[in-house]
Lab assay of single mutants.
Amino acid sequence: HNLTITQGKLFFHYNPKLCLSEIHKMEEVSGTKGRQERNDIALKTNGDQASCENELLKFSYIRTSFDKILLRWEPYWPPDFRDLLGFMLFYKEAPYQNVTEFDGQDACGSNSWTVVDIDPPLRSNDPKSQNHPGWLMRGLKPWTQYAIFVKTLVTFSDERRTYGAKSDIIYVQTDATNPSVPLDPISVSNSSSQIILKWKPPSDPNGNITHYLVFWERQAEDSELFELDYCLKGLKLPSRTWSPPFESEDSQKHNQSEYEDSAGECCSCPKTDSQILKELEESSFRKTFEDYLHNVVFVPRKTSSGTGAEDPRPSRKRRSLGDVGNVTVAVPTVAAFPNTSSTSVPTSPEEHRPFEKVVNKESLVISGLRHFTGYRIELQACNQDTPEERCSVAAYVSARTMPEAKADDIVGPVTHEIFENNVVHLMWQEPKEPNGLIVLYEVSYRRYGDEELHLCVSRKHFALERGCRLRGLSPGNYSVRIRATSLAGNGSWTEPTYFYVTDYLDVPSNIA
């Protein structure tokens, strides 16, 4: 807008934040220059609390790290170098490059900038070799853009010569660093050979998330399962459950009422301010606690030095998902009996873990797994792929695949051998790939016309006998059925096997 004052003059007093240069501009645009008398524009009460600059400061050096910015700028000295009290560095987070010096300023003089007072450097006698002032900004957020400017702080001049310097606002972004852990990993099994893994992005990506790394490792069953005799009275049979499938998407929606109208769909109840505040506090606490764990609990591995020492970490090797089922080394339970199943799973520490690289999504279907087997899954978020990966501390989750139908069934015939004193040795093959492992066998036998009897055969007993022995049988026709019990439950009964026990007292003698 054009402003013209045809008559009258300007009068400025007691404006401590208004620089004289701005008042002189007002004289020019209003056409009143030359009308004012000496005392109409006070030299001592206008701009006496402001830094009124008329020179431009330029930054000469900028260096960044993930949490620091090192700045240096060209030296500046007023005509009387004693008038320079120091520099004021202003900075704040700036997602967009549209910041002005006066953003967030209120009537009390406060604003949204963080201000650092910096002492002037030592003055050199040689004007050509003056030290460049600077400042190291610490405690910054990774991968965050900051708006920065600097200006001088000078003393009051009796001659009211307006001098000083100020830089333009520059924008500097800190470097990326390792992201925080992925949030809320959930693993479920939808079949006997697959596990579905879902997660949420890290709360602090500290860069642009480029991919996720998912490692999985087959877990050995508890050692007590191999040692305890679950045929003993009072000892509860062990059981394991597989990871249940995901709930429906509708039930997972946030901010939804727990109660549904019987007449149909209901609208979600909005969260109160107290609920939102509580969630923010919980989120802040979780982030602080995660940072504490990362800094205190997890110790970084030592990389190899120039002395030739090897990095103890196993090298990563990509495998196809079809090879995942046989990740671990199978060892027989008892070496003397080769027909026992290889369900003991000690994992070799030198073995390469299978892994998958996930790009542009937060889910993965891990296939080719062994049925009813526990897996430990390790999830890392990465925001750099080359020249070397920059990934987060791992988040861990466990899951067990679903049982395989008929995996616990005894394959092959049940054979028998009759000894003296009416002892019958029953023999059968253990299931080759049971659900988890076989903890015991149930032997059901009966003599024709009598009630059915049951015998429990422990895992250890089966390994020693290759089956079991029935003792003290009365003469007669017998039928026997056997079924295995694994961590997933009972298998199917075998087809009945028949044998006849004679009275050993009636056996004919070869003595003449």
Rank of each mutant, 00 (worst) to 15 (best):
P403T: 05
R400L: 05
D261M: 06
A463C: 08
K287C: 02
H425C: 04
C267K: 03
V411L: 03
R390S: 05
Y230C: 14
P238S: 04
L228H: 06
G325F: 09
A220N: 11
K317P: 09
G472F: 10
F289C: 01
H454V: 14
E420D: 12
Y498P: 03
E310G: 14
V507R: 15
I438H: 02
V334L: 12
F462R: 13
C468W: 08
E452K: 08
H425D: 08
E350S: 15
I482R: 01
V324Q: 06
H254W: 07
H211S: 05
E310P: 08
M427T: 09
E310L: 08
R301S: 10
I366E: 01
V480A: 09
T340F: 12
L505Q: 06
P354Y: 13
Y500L: 08
R376F: 10
V443E: 00
K406F: 13
S444N: 01
V327D: 12
R459T: 07
R459L: 10
E452L: 13
T241F: 13
A335V: 13
L321R: 07
G436A: 14
P431V: 05
K278D: 14
S367M: 14
K278S: 06
V297H: 03
I276A: 04
K236Y: 08
Q429R: 03
E417S: 11
A395M: 11
A309I: 08
S444P: 01
P244C: 12
E290C: 02
E442R: 01
T307G: 09
F355G: 12
Y212R: 00
F499Y: 02
S304E: 13
N490W: 15
A263N: 05
G234R: 05
G207P: 01
V393W: 14
F285G: 02
H416D: 15
V414C: 04
A220Q: 14
P245S: 11
G264Y: 14
F289P: 01
A399T: 05
G308S: 11
H371G: 10
N422T: 11
S284R: 14
K357Y: 14
E227K: 05
E265W: 12
Y445H: 05
Y375N: 01
C456Q: 01
R319K: 09
S392M: 00
P312Y: 11
K432G: 04
N510W: 14
E417G: 12
P332G: 06
G325V: 09
G374K: 09
K357F: 13
F499N: 01
S342T: 05
R447N: 11
Y500V: 11
H294A: 12
L277I: 11
A407C: 01
E227S: 10
T415A: 08
R471Q: 03
Y478V: 01
P496Q: 03
F298D: 01
P431R: 02
